[in-house]
Write a protein that binds this DNA or RNA. Structure first.
Lengths: 197, 197, 197, 197
DNA sequence: TTCTAATCGAGACGGTACGTCAGGTCTTCTC
DNA sequence: GAGAAGACCTGACGTACCGTCTCGATTAGAA
């Protein structure tokens, strides 16, 4: 999709100012007034960008919010070097929980997840670009623990990942209060020791 | 909402036929065409009921779907007598998972949860009438296990409930495949033994 | 199209206020700013009527202008009793010329004729409801003159009608100055005596 | 607009291929799909020319159609030498009628006339470059007849011209069937003898 | 031969209006 | 008084063209 260096491109280049204004406006509107407020029309007006330009680059308002979200939390999956498996898991789940509890991120993600119900493209993007990499990070940590003999070889990784990452999403999506930090610790400990029999 | 016997009521009584036709039409439309298809307009047309009547009794299309949902799975929370704690938990989580995986229920609930994002009334109703009773059933079972000494007294019930019930919702809402029956078994076993240290 | 007395009609009746506000607004806009100004959007705004209501009753902006035009000049075809054939023809052509030269009518008709180029429905309506009755009035007068022996029996009525009524339209549509009253007199005299050989 | 010989112009010269491709494409589109089809966008696409180029040379789609029209029928006004006045008039009106009835010309002219309603530049061009020369040819013939004593000196030339040339335009613009050849003959005879008293 | 001036093509952009859809409200008549 | 029918307003949708604006590529005469 992106040319390698030289590639001369004809025509007027895309306006980066317009793109970022749209992303910002969408996020602000969604945070202020909920998903219903982030219409293409309102975004265009606030971003001082024409509606046609928006439709040229994005298929729906939800896709704009999603792109802004992915931009904002890009590279937020880190694994602390020199730590025990449990510490690594706590780090993963804690940072996931923190992101979802962040008042500037959680509501946006909730909107996007709601939109994914009626828009397969959004659903795919959420799964591929948001869910999958985060599940993978947890799964890798668990598999390394199995390799090191810390966990038995018959552990069902998928089930363990589900138990670890579901609660923050569940609470976000249903409008329940987010997990406290200590609750996250207990959750990880419970699942970890449950995996060891 | 429903009066007790005596009140006599003047005028034409509410049509039960209209109510059930509306609920059925809403469910069918939502299953056939997703959330976007279950508009008040379409429901009215399919149910052969006037739009005015619908607006008189329900505030939104989502509330109709929710009411139909609650009608359909009323009294679906049962606890098998004469069973071990683990068996009871497996029963609870399995039946929850089965309901959410049911192609006639899951999509509807997913719609309603999506609608709860932008409608506080729906959010409240989902929490109070759907989520709370099911969490309570699991929590009661866990507390009984603590009382019987099967689990230590310092178990964090809320965390354990989260770990047990979140995965089916998480998978439903994100459009992932539902948990297999054996995965449910392993999930309960993992959390149960994790709670025992 | 309209029911005779009894018919009782269910539902909210059509708003006559809205209809006339739309017709007035369309005429005003078309007179002020030319055909390009009389958009459905602008008409709706000026008439304080919603766009949807307009689309419910009219298929296009031009059809609104046309309806207003037909309303305004309804029953404008009269034939003076007790007059010679030539006087009757002068009357017909003069009043046609006056209407087309009327600054409150001519421009509107010109707009509608322009719209008829790209809209067959408008074209049909103009021919049937505007052109045909006026041609018929002239043709009747000519045929009566033939019957009375004032004109020979082999006169080509259609050709004579064309010669009499075309010039005012021609001048209107091309933006030329309208015919003066005396020019109309001379036109009728010329065609009349030309028909007598 | 056109340079006097020598001037030599620097820079890339205007592409004649582009010009004629645009004129052809505009005519084809207008004939196929009516005035609404001949948009600048569609013309550009069919002519394989960029929109910018079109806007550089023409102010509107209608002006393109008009230019093509004038190109096509240039020098179509001829007067047959050695003929009576009536024959010359019949020749003029017949060829005008034939041009307007030509399925490759009439619809285009009708489009352009419609566009003249909302575009003063088009209106001017139509009057100056299309209408005026044709009226002049007829008027000259009539004046020669007066000079030769075939017509009385008090003939109103303008009125006579109107009566002769209006009908074909009138019928074209309103979508009526064109005049038959014999009808043209009768029209000229009627007006001619009407002018002689 | 390089400059320089004009063209042409490609495509992004801000706009305006389109015609449609759904949400809600209101008015009238019927059961 | 409930319900049906239907007119109405509001607001957003996604699309089509408009006319303007950068760009780069091309083509010639002029320095």
């Amino acid at each position: 999709m992106v040319e390698a260096g030289s590639a001369a491109r004809r025509g007027r280049p895309r306006s980066e100012a317009a793109r970022s204004a749209v992303l910002t406006a969408a996020a602000e509107l969604a945070l202020e007034g909920g998903p219903a407020a982030a219409t293409v029309e309102a975004i265009a007006k606030r971003a001082h960008v024409s509606r046609t330009t928006i439709y040229k680059w994005w298929p729906s308002a939800a896709s704009i919010v999603l792109e802004g979200l992915l931009d904002a939390v890009r590279a937020s999956i880190t694994r602390p070097s020199g730590s025990t498996s449990v510490q690594a898991l706590v780090h993963h789940v804690s940072s996931l929980n923190a992101i979802l509890a962040d008042p500037a991120v959680g509501p946006l993600l909730r909107n996007v997840i709601a939109a994914s119900t009626s828009d397969p493209a959004i659903e795919r993007a959420v799964l591929d670009q948001w869910i999958a990499p985060r599940r993978a990070a947890v799964a890798v940590t668990l598999r390394e623990a199995v390799d090191r003999g810390e966990l038995p070889g018959d552990v069902d990784i998928e089930v363990a990942v589900d138990a670890l990452v579901s609660p923050p999403y569940y609470r976000l999506v249903l409008g329940m209060p987010p997990l406290a930090a200590e609750a996250v610790d207990r959750l990880v400990e419970t699942v970890w020791s449950g995996c060891r029999h």
